[in-house]
């Protein structure tokens, strides 16, 4: 039985798509057959970040409308085995998704995949609702600032009331907090909320802290998920997050300001 994971946030531009690509890739690298679905109909970002935009023929909306079948629309990743992408349409608007259609596609994917990762659009409207409705788990992507935390709180309220699990009174959606674009130096100066501040307000388990890193933009420009950049701290932080998602208990890294000592004059690579 497949596990459906929604990557959501409320606020826009906090790193949902970056996270969807990283976590989807990470799960596939560990041997789980994984598909990442782009629910951001009209914008289409995921295929760019995952470097397959040139290979999109049919999309999620085509499948929902029975204009194409799943096999025609799924794009197999060229780098990682067991990784597939179901791209969004750039030419339609969000209202073309309907809940029965989404359910049909997810059920069909569930027959052959271990993980279905849903990249949610921003906002708390229809698109975000569609992306979360069938979720078993939710990764709530939050930046360390007040408005993002507020929106995440709002999303957590919807996860607890507007998902199928909630409506059917089943065990609630398993919630994970992923704090991204974290800058310990700015936290120390009081310019950003700290990990503890955010944890205290949202009161859900912390899946990981992803540091702010120039490597992220570079990776997305190159169409290569950041988790594949194993020398990058952001890539390593995503690796850790995937491990925790799979149940491992790891210490959180990249949450303190690096001390400038002798050893920090070198960079250690892990390749």
């Amino acid at each position: 039985m497949a596990e459906v994971i929604v990557i959501t946030s409320g606020k826009g531009g906090v790193g949902k798509t970056t996270t969807s690509a990283a976590i989807g890739t990470g799960l596939a690298m560990r041997g789980y057959k994984t598909v990442v679905i782009d629910f951001d109909v009209g914008l289409r970002n995921l295929d760019l970040i995952m470097g397959c935009e040139r290979r999109v023929v049919y999309d999620f909306v085509n499948v929902i409308r029975n204009e194409a079948n799943l096999n025609q629309s799924l794009i197999r990743d060229k780098r990682v085995e067991d990784l597939f992408i179901l791209p969004a349409s750039q030419t339609r608007d969000k209202d073309t998704l309907d809940i029965e259609g989404v359910e049909r596609v997810i059920n069909q994917l569930a027959e052959s995949f271990d993980y279905i990762v849903c990249d949610s659009p921003a906002g708390i409207e229809r698109g975000a609702f569609m992306a979360m409705y069938f979720a078993d788990q939710a990764v709530v992507v939050t930046n360390p600032e007040v408005s993002s935390v507020r929106d995440s709180d709002r999303i957590l309220g919807l996860l607890a009331s507007k998902t199928r699990r909630a409506e059917e009174g089943r065990e609630p959606v398993k919630e994970h907090l992923l704090l991204t674009r974290y800058e310990p130096a700015r936290v120390e100066k009081g310019e950003m909320l700290s990990v503890d501040d955010v944890k205290e307000i949202l009161a859900i388990p912390l899946l990981g802290v992803i540091p702010e890193s120039k490597d992220v933009l570079q990776a997305s420009n190159a169409g290569s998920p950041i988790i594949l950049a194993s020398e990058s701290d952001a890539g390593q932080a995503y690796e850790d997050a995937v491990s925790r998602l799979l149940g491992e208990d790891l210490v959180h890294r990249f949450v303190e300001v690096e001390k400038k000592g002798f050893f920090n004059k070198f960079r250690l690579f892990r390749s």
């Binding site: 709180d153 957590l156 309220g157």
Partner: peptide
């Protein structure tokens, strides 16, 4: 028993309300 999150509203009509978790700003 669960947190009351931003945007949510809870009303105990005709009686008391007990919240065993936190109540977020905006709730």
């Amino acid at each position: 028993r669960q947190p009351v999150r931003s945007g949510q509203k809870v009303y105990a009509r005709g009686g008391d309300l007990i919240v065993l978790a936190s109540v977020s700003t905006g709730a």
